[in-house]
């Protein structure tokens, strides 16, 4: 990360895309009548939006560059805190949803920690360290939350009549 503006664009995009993905997952779970997991994903989206609002406040008054999505400097193709679509399953349980959220928080934490470690800019280092610390708190909370949900039995995804889209 070369400039504070560039870092803030990454942070804003990370939280925004995370929230949008949780929204999408919540919607599709609702469509598939998996209301428990839909509710969990809605809560995750809410938390991502709170963090997004916080970062936007810190970005107020600063000039932010426009960076096309494919030029953002993520470790992978997508923003680190975005749950991969392929992690979704219509029969997934709260355990799976929390595991997916935990993985996303861990990648978010690793991203911010990596920026804080590598940057030469003291302002970026300070902010990235703060964000990494916040992600560490989220990780701890999710780990606690997960204790309430043991892994489901093997075969949880078996379905003799899988879904079909009907026009």
């Amino acid at each position: 990360m070369d400039t504070l503006g560039e870092f803030l664009v990454h942070a804003i995009t990370l939280e925004d895309e995370s929230a949008q993905r949780f929204d999408e997952l919540a919607d599709v779970m609702e469509v598939h009548h998996n209301s428990e997991v839909a509710g969990l994903f809605q809560r995750m989206a809410h938390y991502s939006r709170l963090h997004l609002a916080d970062i936007k406040r810190q970005a107020e008054g600063k000039e932010l560059p426009h960076i096309p999505p494919w030029e953002l400097k993520w470790p992978d193709d997508e923003a680190p805190e975005t749950v991969a679509h392929e992690e979704g399953h219509y029969l997934m349980t709260a355990y799976h949803a929390l595991r997916a959220a935990l993985r996303s928080e861990r990648t978010g934490h690793a991203f911010y920690a990596g920026v804080a470690r590598d940057t030469q800019d003291p302002e970026i280092r300070k902010l990235a360290s703060e964000f990494a610390a916040e992600e560490a708190e989220h990780i701890a909370l999710l780990e606690q939350w997960l204790l309430k949900y043991p892994p489901p039995r093997e075969g949880w995804d078996e379905d003799l009549d899988p879904p079909a889209v009907v026009d």
């Binding site: 803030l8 995009t13 919607d27 936007k56 932010l64 560059p65 426009h66 399953h89 889209v165």
Partner: peptide
């Protein structure tokens, strides 16, 4: 760009409708 949005004038979300996809999760 606008510091409040960190995005061009049109955002990707402006192109998404309110209809919830019925595709399978994943």
């Amino acid at each position: 760009i606008d510091a409040d949005t960190a995005a061009p004038v049109l955002k990707a979300s402006d192109y998404k409708s309110d209809v919830k996809p019925v595709w399978c999760p994943g």
